[in-house]
Simulated assay, not measured.
Amino acid sequence: MKFLSLIFMVLLITACSEQESNNSNNNDKFIGFWVEGGPDFKYTATYANVVEISKQGDNYFINENYVYGNDQTIAMRKVTKPQDNFDGLAYPSERNFGLENRVTFHGDNYSKIGIFNTVFFRISKEEAEQIKRDVKECEEIEKNRFFIPKAQQAEYKKRANELAYCRIFW
């Protein structure tokens, strides 16, 4: 009987540690850059909502304002099903009156996450940097659009239409 209970105890400990390991691997899949909407969203949206999720040691961080230059990162906490009925990450949000934004995966391929009620799609760091450059160039065009000579306005309009997340009304 002691031998049987010892085997049962070893199996129980192994199963628990494996589940914790799988949770850790799932949480690591959050790391990276994410953009609101889908692949075609950049041609219809006027706001480039790109977030970066990073990890330092065992701590996760999110930078919600990656594109617009606010380098403030917000600490996140891991949440598991027994605590709050969902697996993922959470962080306090000033925009949601102090409620926590919950970050969860949508689907099985880890390419979509949900933050509060918004869906974000995984993008590469290069794509995130390109969006950042496009937004900066668009802001420059918009800031100077009234000073562009009429002869060059068509060229600037064309360029603005080529840039992601650039909606300038001439």
Rank of each mutant, 00 (worst) to 15 (best):
M1P: 11
M1D: 13
K2G: 12
F3E: 12
F3D: 12
F3A: 15
L4W: 06
L4R: 11
I7A: 15
F8P: 14
M9I: 15
L11R: 07
L12Q: 14
I13W: 08
C16D: 13
S17K: 12
S17F: 14
Q19R: 11
Q19T: 13
S21F: 12
S21D: 09
N22G: 06
N23L: 14
S24A: 15
N26K: 15
K29S: 11
K29H: 07
F30C: 07
I31S: 06
F33T: 01
F33N: 01
W34C: 02
W34M: 02
G38F: 03
P39N: 03
P39Y: 04
P39V: 08
D40L: 02
F41L: 00
K42G: 00
T46P: 01
Y47N: 01
Y47Q: 00
Y47D: 00
N49V: 01
N49Y: 04
V50N: 00
I53F: 01
I53H: 02
S54H: 01
S54F: 02
K55L: 01
K55M: 03
Q56Y: 04
G57C: 02
D58W: 02
N59P: 04
N59W: 02
Y60I: 04
Y60T: 05
F61D: 07
E64D: 12
V67D: 02
V67P: 01
Y68H: 04
Y68P: 03
N70W: 03
N70V: 05
D71P: 05
D71W: 10
D71I: 12
Q72W: 12
Q72E: 15
T73K: 09
I74N: 13
A75N: 15
M76C: 14
M76Q: 14
K78G: 04
V79Q: 04
P82C: 08
Q83A: 14
D84H: 09
N85Q: 14
N85W: 15
F86T: 06
F86G: 07
G88P: 11
G88H: 06
L89C: 08
A90D: 09
P92Q: 13
E94Y: 15
F97V: 08
G98W: 07
L99P: 08
E100H: 13
N101H: 10
T104K: 13
T104Q: 14
T104I: 12
F105G: 07
G107V: 13
D108I: 14
D108M: 13
Y110W: 08
S111C: 10
G114H: 13
F116A: 13
N117F: 07
T118D: 10
T118G: 05
V119A: 10
F120R: 11
I123N: 04
S124D: 07
E127S: 02
A128S: 06
E129N: 08
E129T: 06
Q130D: 04
I131Y: 06
K132V: 01
R133N: 08
V135F: 01
K136W: 03
E137K: 07
E139N: 09
E139R: 08
E139F: 05
E140W: 03
E142K: 12
F147H: 05
K150N: 03
Q152K: 00
Q153L: 06
A154Y: 03
E155L: 03
A160D: 08
N161Y: 05
R167T: 11
R167N: 12
R167S: 10
I168C: 10
W170N: 09
W170Y: 14
